[in-house]
Design a protein around this nucleic acid. Structure first.
Length: 288
DNA sequence: CGAGTATCCTGTCCGC
DNA sequence: TGCGGACAGGATACTC
């Protein structure tokens, strides 16, 4: 579910609450939610208890909280993960999977995850490195200060795969999921099935630049919420859904040309595009 | 390396 | 009202 903007909105909210808190207790209510923590539940707990949260970070769809030592608490929200601060004596358990209590607070951090595709782990960090080891194989995302559209475009253009598949490959560029892939493709008038190696460099760079723009605009709007599975840290939905041009707009007019937006099956999921603006082959010589 | 497929889960919605 | 199937923001692990 959550892509980069939703993860970033949640990180910012959680950062405000968590920094300065010292972890006093950790309860894992569903073992699957820490399956990526190879040391198991006891190790997960012991690495967290006593640690103070001193900062936070994010790469792509992974977020983490910096701890006093060399470890970081890494979280991936999967399709349905949420973070929230709730009273420790709350009785309603809905899909509560993990909760953290703090030394000087009656509130707890709750990791809620209906489908349990997400998870948490404690990951060591190499001294001097900005990111925990657990995410070191994740590519830079388009909003990272070190991200280079030129370098990533060069990497993309050696692939024979469809452009959307490459855009969704977190080892090539991270943070982009199904929604924002469709949005970036719409903005650059590209068909999702275009082979990456058939695209001129400038079009791939434009695609990455538009991806960065749409991600930033979505963050500013609080992310995209289709249902209650995505809300920000304070339980408030994002309203970027109103600004989507392609995703979810089956049968509705393209805002650029009026054609009816299509939905197509690709890689087991839905892709939305404008049949006129995003044809399978370039119709005529493009201007510019 | 990459294409294709299956899998992990729970819930909602739609058609019959 | 019930039931089966499709579908949902993601990632990984297989086979070939």
């Amino acid at each position: 579910m959550p892509e980069l903007p939703e993860v970033e909105v949640i990180r910012r909210g959680a950062h405000r609450y968590l920094v300065g808190q010292r972890i006093a207790e950790v309860e894992v209510l569903h073992p699957r939610s820490i399956r990526w923590h190879l040391g198991g539940e006891a190790d997960f707990r012991s690495r967290l208890v006593g640690e103070e949260v001193v900062g936070s970070g994010r790469r792509g769809k992974y977020l983490w909280f910096d701890l006093t030592g060399h470890d970081k608490l890494v979280i991936h929200l999967g399709m349905s993960g949420q973070l929230a601060v709730r009273d420790r004596d709350r009785t309603q358990r809905d899909h509560l999977r993990v909760r953290l209590g703090f030394t000087e607070s009656d509130q707890q951090l709750h990791f809620i995850d209906q489908r349990t595709f997400g998870g948490m782990l404690v990951s060591p960090t190499v001294v001097g490195a900005a990111t925990p080891l657990a995410v070191d194989r994740v590519a830079l995302d388009p909003l990272d200060p070190l991200f280079s559209p030129e370098r990533t475009a060069a990497r993309i253009r050696i692939s024979r795969r469809e452009i959307k598949r490459v855009l969704l490959d977190q080892k090539v560029v991270s943070g982009i999921g199904n929604i924002y892939a469709d949005e970036a493709l719409w903005r650059t008038r590209l068909h999702w099935a275009r082979r990456a190696d058939s695209l001129p460099t400038r079009r791939v760079i434009a695609l990455l630049e538009q991806a960065a723009v749409v991600l930033e605009e979505s963050i500013a709007a609080g992310g995209t919420s289709f249902d209650s599975l995505y809300v920000n840290f304070d339980g408030v939905p994002g309203y970027f859904g109103r600004e989507l041009n392609a995703y979810g707009r089956l049968g509705q007019p393209c805002y650029r040309c009026g054609s009816s937006i299509r939905r197509e099956r690709f890689d087991g999921r839905s892709s939305f595009r404008c049949p006129r603006c995003q044809p399978s082959r370039t119709v005529k010589a493009e201007s510019g």
